[in-house]
Design a protein around this nucleic acid. Structure first.
Length: 908
RNA sequence: GCGGAGAUUGCCGAGCCAGGACAAAGGCGAUGGAUUCAGGGUCCAUUUCCGCAGGGAUUCGGGGGUUCAAAUCCCCCUCUCCGCACCA
């Protein structure tokens, strides 16, 4: 708590300076068009994308991580000499913006509060009401926040080429989406069918997880029941079950003591509970006939299909009329409830066994759990599970001998195809929307799907995945599994912002499906736009030519220049070399992204790499409004500056792991950054040489080498620990050695600023201009050929000195003595001879073998001139140990010897 | 249930894929010291235990195995986290 004090001090000084500096360079970059990418055939290209943000509100720390990683990588790739394209656009498709706008129109207090909180960060108090009023028009929300996000991204120093910006609501972009869907249809990947969804009768709308009360903590899913038709000449009864394989064990049926409804379906009459009728009317085209009392059912007998026997119906209070059809059939041989109630009601029924399984049965379970109502549920679960995994059907006609698993699907399908059963959908639990209206399952007729189940498409996508790069690697398998798991996916809905299906105007393409290949637009939409503006469409012939190397569209040759540019830009930049996203996208966006590319494009346009970064939490908790730990990007850059945020994102956690945004870790990063600023502000060019400068330069290039190697696999954190933290530590060490910091930094400043610039670009740009030259460090490249600048002999020598000092200290501590001096004996000719001729030693040398073996682990294999090195650094050793140091060379081999890297030390 | 990730020394968190110099990086915290210093700054040292000579003992969720050698490889167990669809 108290150290908030110190970050305040920091805020006042460095922070203000930083904000000015940052704005200055952002303006310079923009005015000089530094990050606007152009085709350059002399350089390899690198196309990096992050998902376009959804514009229904402002972004927070969590969102910022992915974008910041994208920018760091874009900048690093420039530094490596690539021609980089790092674009951005905005997502406006789908229902949320529409829904928020609607709620504002209804003056919903929560929504008003939410938007007020967004706006308070950006606007003067006086403007807020006016803006909220304007948000009643959905596009005003989208436009407002798109602008704010551009500002935020600019303020964080992102090197985005904004000239290529577009949104998913732009009419010209939507021409590409339409073209894409026509392609998918040509490939037979578009289908139509019935589809169950969660639905609110009162709202007359589909409901998502977010709309359901406690939907995030207790998920609601759609359950599929088999509605078995029990026949009677007056009317049929529909009994719902999740275990159709037990049909041969039916002895009776149960209903509740409540109202039932008779309806007409395909000219026949059926009865279900009154509640069930309402729900079924959203699943089937049925007509109300009349309500009846339960005794109209219990007074009749009904015939069970397949079994071909007539059964009685009884009233039981465990039957819930508001679950499925409100009618259940009874299999006392294999259902705990049924058995219990038959005994309880004293019914004389012939209990049949139709599943063979060892060591478990209804009777045994009831004995174990006790004949009590409260334990029935638990016993049921145990029984169902055991029978499902281990049961074999018996006494079940043609189905005898099948496993329960197999029989379930087979009997269900046979019943449905012969008209003896229908599918009945029900929610997995009773659920209501946030506004309190009941959630049921409705079946949408004529729903459009993309069929991702096609084997040829899965195969192609798997081949793509095999070729791609994944960071971290383990996501390759997760991605492949997600592809296998994908089936038909609804791709359109009746409302929301987006593109209309080109072959069915009633439907709007669903928001994730319209954004699977949108990155193509970054390469060339600005040229296609010219065509759209004139024609009001972008004809397929043009897009086929541009994206699929089709024939030149002679009909449109007056647009030859734009068409040619669009095609060149696409062929030069596409495919996406690296896409950076987060884990929640794997089973949806990323799967569609890969599969749509596999379906439509040639291999050389496939995605080439994927980074999946970890989540961001804030102060140890998931970021959410309710926890009050949402920190907007705007606030971050105001409070900490862009470079500090970027540095924290880079070094705060490994790319794949959880990043916790918290004051403590942050202040550690700030401390290091401040010491860098300190060095830089006090810098002036100086010349000096000597051992420690040689060491420092070697260490720097060794760190730089590590940086290159680590960045090659996007280990950004480790790379910056090398080039930032390690170098700062070396500078501290150099000070301890009484080296001149400025002289040392003079040797490496240019390369250091370039290497740091991807993470702290503003800071680097500032010092680059101040000390180096008037050009943009953001566009400089670094030479990787630095092996000759690393002098390992010097590095090892310094290590040797440090080890020596540590040994002397340890001896002093362990021996609890404090002499005034130390005599150091380093290895001599005899020891050197010993090591070189270890395999055929003779005479006097044999005496040293035990000593050599004992110390072997710490003997350096490379020999350095220890005598000279100690003498060269003797002042430092004396200072660090507070001992007067004397050195000599060993002149004989003995029982106890100094060895390379392991001198003898005697405190005197 | 299915699939995935993980459990490391006070805390956070590297290392594990390619076994050996690992008592195990780094940060935070703690302790001692330095700094013409009055204790929120900076620097140095220590931070599993034992040790009057640079050493030894015991550790990396639990158990077993492979190996000259295991935090690292194999098997079993326990526990934690994440995803499972129409929602951007």
């Amino acid at each position: 708590m108290d150290n908030s004090y110190c970050s305040c001090c920091f805020n006042n000084n460095v922070m203000d300076m930083n904000n000015n500096i940052e704005k200055k360079w952002q303006t310079e970059w923009k005015n000089n068009h530094v990050f606007e990418s152009k085709i350059d055939n002399n350089r390899p290209k690198f196309f990096v994308t992050v998902p376009w943000p959804y514009t229904n509100g402002s972004l927070h720390v969590g969102h910022g991580r992915t974008y910041t990683l994208g920018d760091i990588i874009a900048r690093y790739k420039r530094l490596e000499g690539y021609n980089v394209l790092f674009p951005m656009g905005f997502h406006e498709s789908g229902t949320p913006i529409l829904a928020f706008s609607e709620r504002l129109r209804e003056n919903d207090p929560d929504t008003i509060k939410l938007y007020r909180s967004y706006l308070e960060e950006y606007e003067e108090k006086g403007n807020i009401d006016r803006l909220i009023e304007s948000f009643k028009e959905p596009e005003n929300i989208a436009n407002y926040f798109a602008d704010k996000i551009i500002n935020d991204f600019t303020a964080l120093g992102y090197s985005i080429d904004w000239t290529r910006r577009f949104t998913s609501a732009d009419a010209d972009y939507q021409e590409i989406v339409k073209w894409q869907f026509k392609k998918l249809k040509d490939l037979n990947l578009i289908k139509q069918g019935n589809y169950p969804i969660l639905y609110s009768i009162k709202d007359e709308n589909a409901v998502g997880e977010d709309d359901i009360k406690d939907g995030d903590v207790d998920k609601v899913t759609i359950e599929e029941y088999t509605g078995l038709i029990l026949e009677n000449d007056d009317f049929n009864l529909i009994a719902a079950s999740v275990r159709p394989e037990t049909i041969f064990g039916i002895t009776n049926a149960w209903i509740s003591n409540s109202l039932y409804t008779i309806f007409e379906y395909n000219n026949k009459h059926y009865a279900v509970s009154k509640e069930a009728f309402t729900k079924l009317s959203y699943q089937y085209n049925i007509k109300f006939v009349k309500d009846i009392k339960p005794d109209e059912i219990t007074s009749r007998k009904f015939k069970v299909p397949l079994l071909n026997e007539y059964i009685d119906v009884y009233i039981a209070d465990f039957v819930d009329p508001d679950n499925a059809t409100g009618v259940v059939y009874s299999v006392p041989g294999h259902a705990i409830y049924d058995y219990y109630y038959i005994k309880k009601l004293g019914l004389k029924l012939n209990i049949k066994k139709v599943i063979a399984i060892d060591n478990i049965s209804v009777e045994k379970l009831l004995e174990r759990y006790g004949y009590e109502e409260k334990s029935l549920k638990e016993a049921t679960q145990e029984l169902y599970k055991a029978e499902y995994y281990n049961g074999i059907l018996i006494n079940s006609g043609n189905y005898s001998g099948l496993s329960v698993k197999d029989a379930r699907d087979k009997i269900k399908n046979d019943l449905i195809s012969s008209g003896k059963a229908i599918i009945v959908y029900e929610t997995s639990r009773k659920a209501v929307t946030r506004s309190g209206s009941k959630v049921i399952v409705a079946v949408i007729n004529g729903q459009w799907f993309i069929d991702y189940s096609q084997p040829w498409l899965k195969k192609k996508t798997h081949e793509m995945i095999d070729e791609m790069a994944f960071y971290p690697e383990f996501y390759r398998k997760i991605m492949a599994d997600a592809i296998d798991w994908l089936r038909e996916r609804p791709c359109a809905r009746k409302r929301g912002i987006g593109t209309r299906l080109p072959f069915d105007n009633e439907w709007v393409i669903e928001s994730l499906s319209d954004s699977t290949i949108y990155m193509v637009g970054y390469t060339n939409l600005k040229y296609l736009r010219n065509i759209y503006n004139e024609l009001g469409e972008i004809p397929d012939e043009i897009l086929n030519y541009v994206y699929l190397n089709g024939d030149f569209p002679e009909n449109y040759k007056k647009f030859r220049e734009d068409i040619q540019m669009a095609r060149n830009e696409f062929n030069y930049w596409y495919g996406v070399d690296l896409r950076i996203t987060a884990p929640p996208h794997i089973s949806n966006h990323l799967s569609f992204y890969l599969m749509n590319h596999a379906a439509i494009f040639e291999k050389d346009k496939y995605p080439k790499g994927l980074i999946i970064s970890g989540l961001v939490i804030s102060n140890g908790a998931k970021i959410s409004k309710s926890k009050g730990n949402v920190i907007s990007l705007l606030k971050i850059k105001e409070k900490y500056s862009a470079d500090i945020y970027r540095l924290f994102v880079a070094v705060g956690a490994d790319i794949s792991s959880l990043l916790d945004w918290n004051e403590k870790d942050l202040s550690a990063v700030i401390k290091r950054y401040e010491s860098f600023i300190d060095i830089m502000n006090n810098f002036e060019f100086k010349n000096d040489d000597g051992f420690i400068y040689k060491w420092f330069a070697s260490r720097f290039y060794s760190n730089l080498n590590d940086y290159f190697n680590l960045m090659a696999s996007y280990k950004i954190r480790d790379a910056y620990i090398s080039i930032f933290y390690n170098v700062l530590n070396d500078i501290k060490h150099l000070e301890l050695r009484h080296g001149d910091v400025n002289a040392a930094v003079s040797m490496i400043l240019k390369d250091w600023l370039i290497a740091l610039s991807p993470v702290i670009p503003h800071t680097c740009e500032e010092y680059w201009h101040r000390y180096i030259e008037n050009s943009f460090v953001s566009l400089k490249t670094l030479d990787k050929n630095i092996a000759n600048r690393i002098d390992n002999y010097t590095i090892e020598s310094e290590n040797y000195i440090e080890n020596l000092i540590n040994d002397i200290r340890e001896i002093k501590r362990a021996a609890k003595i404090s002499g005034s001096g130390a005599l150091i004996t380093v290895y001599g000719d005899d020891q050197e001879y010993f090591i070189k001729n270890y395999n055929n030693l003779t005479g006097k040398f044999k005496i040293a073998i035990p000593d050599y073996m004992k110390n072997k682990q710490r003997i350096m294999n490379k020999m350095i001139d220890e005598y000279a090195i100690i003498n060269e650094n003797i002042d430092y050793i004396q200072e660090m140990t507070s001992l007067k140091i004397e050195v000599n060379r060993s002149n004989k081999i003995d029982k106890k010897n100094p060895w390379p890297g392991r001198p003898l030390i005697r405190i005197i």
